[in-house]
Design a protein around this nucleic acid. Structure first.
Length: 420
RNA sequence: GUGGGUAUAGCUCAGUUGGUUAGAGCGCCAGGUUGUGGCCCUGGAGGUCAUGGGUUCAAAUCCCAUUAUUCACCCCA
């Protein structure tokens, strides 16, 4: 146990970190290109924020939160997602009096106590965007287009965009009545969880994977066919805008996001080849959330993307991520005098932005060369007494194996030139 | 919370019907004359055979439990 990371957590090792750095950088750059600014929010919040924001009836709040009491007796929860914290920050810092809309993005870890499987961990990483203060369908389309462009930028193909509208509270309560009426005739034949859902959140029954429930629900009225005129117009307009920028989508009447705050547009990008947890990202509109959390009524829309799933998908599509450059030069020293000269030289090279590795093991020349080879150094310079005397050294090109005489004074310029 | 698979060196894996001191490849470290990598050769370090019980003269091997891991259900990113 002592030497084992807790269940559902993972080290990201030095040999893999370039992949994370790459997608993080690409995401940040793209968001900024759309006018979004990064926000960093706390890893933990007051538990009630998530109870209120994510919703008391959700699985996340009911059984998946890392909740504990701090030494001051407060109930604290590790964030299970990012939206609630961002909304809290929006309210706390009075962002409604900044020029609207507020466009934010973030890169966070999140925590859910669930059983682990492929593409699902207890500590996981999300990239997210929240757009607050814009009620227009253009906002929905913009947020979705960030994702489409992000995938395009990374070279990811064939993710399916599924989209739906789950209406506003008004049409949803009407629909819930209608749905319950439909279900009531054979409620007795459904699975236990669905019986439970019937009272708490009947819409979830549409999502049940039990065969018997599925067949019973086959002819159930779809929410999308029962939303009010305003929601319908909004939805049609979102689709029209997606068409205008050639983003393909499937209308999926079955999408019911698992968080209570969603209204109107909900969507997800799904992969078929990274296992059963194929949702790479999901999002939607949450026009009631800011008010629910104590702010002025403010529309909002956003998404969250699972970075582990994103990387899985990139691997499954064999997308190559640029690897970091190997060291420009390795400097080896023989003897005391040389090692002092070597310190000075390495310092100067590094100051000039040259990646320089030097011996700190006191190894033999042969071992130093071996090491330089293993770390992929482009050049090797060996310094001994002779070189210091003559102020000349042999610079070895590790790719060709050639060595050339070079005066030490010109080394830096020479390397800078080679680097381009 | 539920079900299946798996657990031997840093990594990938052998290990016979239970039978001496548990192996290989890769990796790591050192060496193969005086100051030069890759290939080759030699040597070395590194294992509580996941943990705890049980059966047996004898267990990495058979049985039970626990833990971890993995895949799936549920749910989600």
């Amino acid at each position: 146990m002592l030497t084992q990371a807790p269940k559902g957590t993972k080290d990201i090792l030095p040999e893999d970190i370039y992949q994370w750095n790459y997608v993080e950088k690409e995401f940040s750059e793209l968001c900024q290109r759309f006018g979004y600014k990064e926000i960093r929010i706390p890893v933990f919040e007051h538990t009630e924020l998530f109870q209120r924001g994510v919703g008391d009836t959700t699985d996340i709040v009911q059984k998946e939160m890392y909740t504990f009491q701090d030494k001051g007796g407060r109930s604290i929860t590790l964030r299970p997602e990012g939206t609630a914290g961002v909304v809290r920050s929006f309210i706390e810092h009075g962002m409604s009096s900044l020029p609207q809309p507020i466009k934010l993005f973030y890169k966070i870890t999140a925590y859910r106590y669930e059983n682990v499987q492929k593409g699902r961990y207890r500590e996981f990483n999300q990239f997210g965007v929240e757009l607050l203060g814009a009620a227009d369908p253009s906002a929905d389309a913009e947020v979705i287009s960030i994702l489409a462009m992000f995938f395009e930028k990374l070279g990811i193909q064939n993710l399916e965009l599924n989209i739906n509208s789950i209406g506003c509270p008004k049409c949803r309560s009407k629909y819930n009545e209608k749905l319950k009426e439909y279900i009531s005739q054979f409620l007795g034949d459904m699975c236990d969880t669905c019986k439970d859902r019937y009272n708490r959140n009947p819409m979830r029954i549409l999502d049940c994977k039990e065969e018997k429930c599925k067949t019973l629900m086959k002819d159930a009225p779809a929410l999308l066919d029962n939303i009010c005129d305003e929601c319908r117009t909004h939805f049609d307009s979102v689709l029209e805008k997606l068409d205008a920028i050639n983003i393909p989508y499937n209308i999926d009447k079955g999408i019911v996001r698992g968080l209570d705050y969603y209204t109107k547009t909900v969507f997800e990008f799904v992969s078929k080849n990274i296992g059963t947890q194929g949702t790479v990202c999901g999002g939607g509109r949450y026009d009631g959330l800011v008010e629910e959390c104590g702010g002025a009524p403010t529309p909002g829309i956003g998404f969250a993307m699972g970075v582990e799933r994103l990387l899985l998908e990139m691997q499954s599509q064999s997308i190559e991520i640029p690897k970091p450059n190997p060291p420009d030069i390795y400097i080896g020293a023989i003897g005391h005098k040389a090692s002092l000269a070597c310190e000075k030289l390495a310092w100067e090279l590094r100051r000039q932005n040259i990646t320089c590795i030097k011996d700190i093991m006191g190894r033999s020349v042969k071992a130093q060369l071996k090491y330089a080879d293993k770390i992929g150094a482009r050049y090797v310079l060996i310094l001994g007494d002779d070189e210091i005397e003559s102020n000349k050294a042999k610079l070895k090109d590790m790719q060709t194996g050639e060595t050339k005489d070079i005066t030490l004074d010109t080394l830096i310029n020479r390397l800078l030139k080679i680097k381009g």
